[in-house]
Every structure is written in structure tokens, then in C-alpha cells.
Design a protein around this nucleic acid. Structure first.
Lengths: 342, 342
DNA sequence: ATGAAAGCGCTAACAC
DNA sequence: GTGTTAGCGCTTTCAT
């Protein structure tokens, strides 16, 4: 019985509503889209019919007919990384305010899936997409984006392209971190980077800021002090252990992000290395948990929620045909906690 | 120029491909759906035409015509909570294997959004949905689910409904935690619960297991030892401080989940309370960071990835008309770390 | 193995 | 203010 009821609803169509209300399909359409003036009387008729039949508009048909979905796509590399969910929340807040919905596609750090996701979103004819991608090389990404009506890229630069860009000034943020450590008396500074097949905007900028600030302080970047690892607790813990064992003279380790810093703190604890007395440790991002790590983490706070909002605003401007703002740069804030001298 | 190219692609249709390949629309359809045998020769023709025109099928049209989307919806309450992204990954892995895509809707712990999300997914005519909901009361949830073709509920029971259910045995898991603490000599055990407008499956079962195990060990549950707080570091930290100040005799605090345990550890540190020597602390879920908290956390590992896989499998069975398995119960595993005596 | 015609449920562009 | 006529781009019958 329940099942039958379900099936019934499924087939209720705009025409059914029109018939019951004694009006034309178009008038019903006007009501559900609030697109045009309908007399209060007919409107009431129609709303009653909708209620009675349990009618729900079919977005698929609407989308096909109007070539407009009021849905935007969001491609995320890894929802498991606490960095990204906050972006989603920002995007969603802005979208809902404008009557759009957000559909998220998780690419799981896989290039193939990234392509699949962008293709799917295209096949669904979403009105625009916000893309957080790390892996896909420029020349593979570009044609995929080209096929979309409106695109905003997050933390990625891409030349020869129509896409809008919202990004964080990672370079400057990392310079601040280095300066903070140097001001705290540290000189032998290691760097635990994330391993990547392709250099990403994030890793390039962060490492670039590190190098620049080291040079500005007359410090040399010792290649032995640099390690790469997976952005997981296990991977970074192991890498940090290696690094600290090979170079016990280190007095600071800068980590690509908070997750890697978490692993580094674990390694320090395991080796009996005091943080920050012997070695200072810094993270990046300021994820939710960085304050409850073994040692509360000094880190660069990345305004992820705001990043999502800005990206969405830029996308909606583009959907509405306004492409004047091409790029947007947001600042971070240094959060000093217990893992560095201060 | 780029824009023109984009516009061109957008309008390439199956009919265009058919025309160029010199076949009928239906034959092209057969090729892109691999639904029927087509001679190798014509297939090659068609593939060449597709390539040449840069054709991409329009899912919207396909979905309207076939009443099938090959998309499943996943409704999550809060992607920011590290509990949920892993479920998404499991669902997605299973879905991609079967040629489906997953669209995620984040409800942000808001009842209205939860309703909106389920309605949106219905309007999109997805083939089925997996719902992780906490807030929506039974009688509001039921009619919304009824309108969907196939439904699987995660960690929620709901009577009088066609939906499949996959859940975790939280009751038993919490019993194990209590037993572990009692075996470690603890008797004055507090409980830091999550605050909710409505009692959820998770909170009810976890607290129920706590009560049952306390009783089984001849221990009374002191109402003063129970607090509720938001599932954030800040909220739980404050609540834990209150609890420890009001009841300094406590020798253990059981937390609803790892996030709350994280705040509790912070409170202990701030108050100079030794963990686990003075007070043992337990979490729940085993999120990625629970091992790098101030004190490595003893917690119940919830197999979230597998949960996602099972939920997806159950959903696909239902989509295929097989509803024999109505419910599925998964076990947790106790991870003993430094925050409890052992 | 392939094609023709009809229609999925809606909106656009004009009527009136 | 409201209705009519065509499609949107695809998949379904059913033919052949």
C-alpha cells in the first residue's frame, strides 16, 4: 500500500495539476516558478491541486526545457582532509541564499576521478562549477573546464582560461611562519613537505615562501633538512622520525600542513624530543583539531569558510555574465600556540 | 574564440553525431550506452563522429527519457565532522564500481536543509538515496523517504518504512568501554554526552550501553556526573572543566565521541588533571586525529568506510528490486591507547 | 543489426 | 492574466 502510494506520486505531473485545477500547464508552471503574475484566485486553486496530488516538480524536465538547473557543482579532492569541508559549507551558505543547490563530487585524490567528476557535472548541465583540484595538469584541466558555463578555481592558477580564481596567499603566510621561528631564535629549520606527483599551487607557494624567507634572513636551505611524505599521520610520523634521527641538530620543523605537523609531534614524543624547547613545530591550515594535538600547534589560519563564500559569489557573478573580477587573494592569520617559542 | 568553442560544444547533440556518422539517432544511443550490438564498423564510424564533434551525452535528457539517472544521493548531516567523509568514500567506491555516481548533500545539522536536500534529490529523480540523518523526527522523515525509489538509512531506526538500515552496534561498543574502565579499576565514571534537540540513534544507543554496563557492574549512574555539550572542542572543553570542577572525585570520563574527548583532554591539561593517572578519558569513533591528541585516545573504532560500502550495496540491491536484507548490524573494535589504564 | 515515430515533463515564445 | 504550440535531447516501443 505504501509502495503504491509512492508509485502514484512519482507520476504526478504538471499536466495533472493543471487538469485538476482547471487551468493550463503554463499557468501551473508560472506558479511553481513564481515567474509571472497569476491571479490570487487561480494561484490558490493550483496550490490546492498541488497539495492534493502530492505533486513535486521534475527538475530533470525543467532543466532540459530551460537549459538551467539552479545547481552548481563543487569538486573536492578529499573530503577526508578537514581543509575542504569548511569550503563546502561556505559555498553552500552562499548558494542557498541565492536559490541554488550544491552538489559535491569527491575525487579522492585520483586524477581519473577528477576527470570523471568534471565530465559528470558537465553531462548534468549544472550552471557552474567550483573546482578544488590539485593533481590534474594544466593541459588536461583546461579543456575540461572550457566545456562548463562558468568556472571558479580555488587555490590554483591556470593561464589561458576564462575561469575565475580565488586563492590564499600561501607564500606570504609561510614567510610569516619562518619569520616567527627566526624571531624565536631558530636557525636550523627543516621542512616536511607533502609528496605529490605534480607540484600543486599549495605546495609550490608554501615552499616558495619558505625559501624566500630563509634567504631574506640569510639562512641557507639545507637539502638534508627537507623531506616529503604523504599527508597522513602515519606517513608524516615516519618521515619526521627519519628526519630527526638523521639531523638531530634541527631546532625547528615547518610542516606543509597540520596533519603532517600532527605526525611530527607524534614522532617527537616517541623520540623524546621536547617541543618547542628542543624543536619547534609549525603546521598550516588551522584545522579543528590543531589546538588539541599533543602540543597545541602554531599554525597559519586559512579562512576556508570565507574562501567558499567568495568562490561562490564569484561563480554566481559569472553565471550572471559578470566576469569583471578575475582573481581574488585572501590572507591568512598566524596562530601562535605552544609548539613554537614566543 | 574559446567562448565560441565552448558554445559550440554545448549544442552538439546526438542527432548531430548521427548525421555525421550517417546513421540513426538510435544507433548512436546504442553505442554510448553499450546497450545493444552494433557492427564494429558502424561503431567505429560513430566513435569517430563523437570524437570529431566533441560530443558529450546530456544526462538530463537521458534521465528524462529513461526515468533512470545512475546517480544516487547521499545526505550527510555535517561533513565537518570527520565521522562522515569516510562513509562518503565507502559509498563512492561501491557506486563507481557499479557505474553510478554519488551526489552529496550536506545538511549542516539543520532540519530545514535536511528536508530541502531530500526534496531536491527527489526532484532530481535520483535512483536512490543513502541518508545519514540525526535531527528529523520520524513522522517528518517518513513521508519524505516514501517518495524515493530506494532508500537506505545509516545509523537510524525507523519503523513502518520500506527503507533498508545499516547501523553500528553502539550499545555493545559502549558496554565494552565501560567494562574496560571498570577492569582498569575505575568506579566514579562521568559521561559527557552530546546535546541534541531530539534523541538520536547514536546518542541513545551509546548512553544506553553506558547505563547497562554500569548496572551490570553494580555501579550507579550519578546524575551529577553527566553533562551535555556541543560536539566541538570549545563546547566540550568548557563542559569538561565544569564537570571536573564540580566533581573532582571522578576517575573516568566517557565521552560521546572523539571530538568531545579532545575537548576533555584540553580541560584536563588546563586544570592540571593527569590523564589517565587521575582521570581516564575515552572517546568514540576513532577519527583520524584521535591518536595525536594531547593524550592518545582510547576509543571505539567505528568502521565507517565499510559502513559506506555496505549501505551502498544494500541500496543497489534495492534499486535492483531485491529488498530481502532489511537490516545490517556492524561491530566496532576497542582501541586501547594512553588515555585509559591498561 | 538498424531505423521511425512517439513521448518523457517541463518551459519558451508567442498568441489572445 | 492566461492558453497554445513547439520543442529541449534523449530513449522507448515497435518495425524492418
Amino acid at each position: 500500500m505504501t509502495a503504491k502510494h509512492t508509485t502514484q506520486n512519482r507520476n504526478v505531473t504538471l499536466a495533472d495539476v493543471a487538469r485538476l485545477a482547471g487551468v493550463s500547464a503554463k499557468t501551473v508552471s508560472r506558479v511553481i516558478n513564481q515567474s509571472d503574475y497569476v491571479s490570487a484566485e487561480t494561484r490558490a486553486q493550483i496550490e490546492k491541486a498541488i497539495e492534493e496530488l502530492g505533486y513535486r516538480p521534475n527538475r530533470v524536465a525543467r532543466s532540459l526545457a530551460s537549459n538551467r538547473s539552479y545547481i552548481i557543482g563543487l569538486s573536492l579532492p578529499d573530503v577526508t582532509n578537514p581543509f575542504f569541508p569548511e569550503i563546502l559549507r561556505g559555498v553552500q551558505q552562499e548558494a542557498l541564499q541565492r536559490g541554488y543547490h550544491v552538489l559535491t563530487y569527491n575525487t579522492d585524490l585520483d586524477m581519473e576521478r577528477e576527470k570523471q567528476g568534471l565530465a559528470l557535472l558537465e553531462e548534468m548541465r549544472v550552471d557552474g562549477i567550483i573546482v578544488c583540484t590539485m593533481r590534474l595538469p594544466d593541459d588536461q584541466l583546461r579543456p575540461l573546464l572550457q566545456r562548463h558555463r562558468a568556472v571558479v578555481l580555488v587555490n590554483r592558477v591556470l593561464a589561458g582560461n576564462e575561469a575565475g580564481i580565488v586563492r590564499i596567499d600561501y607564500f606570504k603566510a609561510m614567510q610569516q611562519i619562518v619569520q616567527h621561528l627566526v624571531d624565536g631564535g631558530r636557525r636550523k629549520i627543516g621542512y616536511l613537505d607533502v609528496s605529490r606527483s605534480v607540484a600543486s599551487y599549495s605546495s609550490t607557494e608554501r615552499f616558495g615562501g619558505f625559501q624566500a624567507a630563509m634567504a631574506a634572513n640569510g639562512l641557507t636551505v639545507n637539502p638534508d633538512y627537507i623531506r616529503r611524505c604523504a599527508a597522513t599521520i602515519e606517513g608524516s610520523s615516519e618521515a619526521a622520525r627519519d628526519l630527526l634521527t638523521a639531523s638531530p641538530e634541527l631546532d625547528a620543523i615547518i610542516c606543509y600542513n597540520d596533519v603532517i605537523a600532527g605526525g611530527t609531534l607524534e614522532a617527537c614524543a616517541a623520540l623524546g624530543v621536547a617541543v618547542p624547547d628542543k624543536v619547534a613545530v609549525t603546521g598550516f591550515d588551522n584545522i579543528m583539531f590543531s589546538s588539541v594535538f599533543k602540543v597545541a600547534l602554531t599554525t597559519a589560519h586559512v579562512p576556508r569558510f570565507e574562501l567558499g563564500i567568495r568562490a561562490a559569489q564569484m561563480l554566481f557573478n559569472r553565471i550572471d555574465g559578470d566576469t569583471t573580477v578575475r582573481e581574488m587573494l585572501l590572507d591568512t592569520e598566524l596562530f601562535v600556540r605552544q609548539s613554537t617559542p614566543h
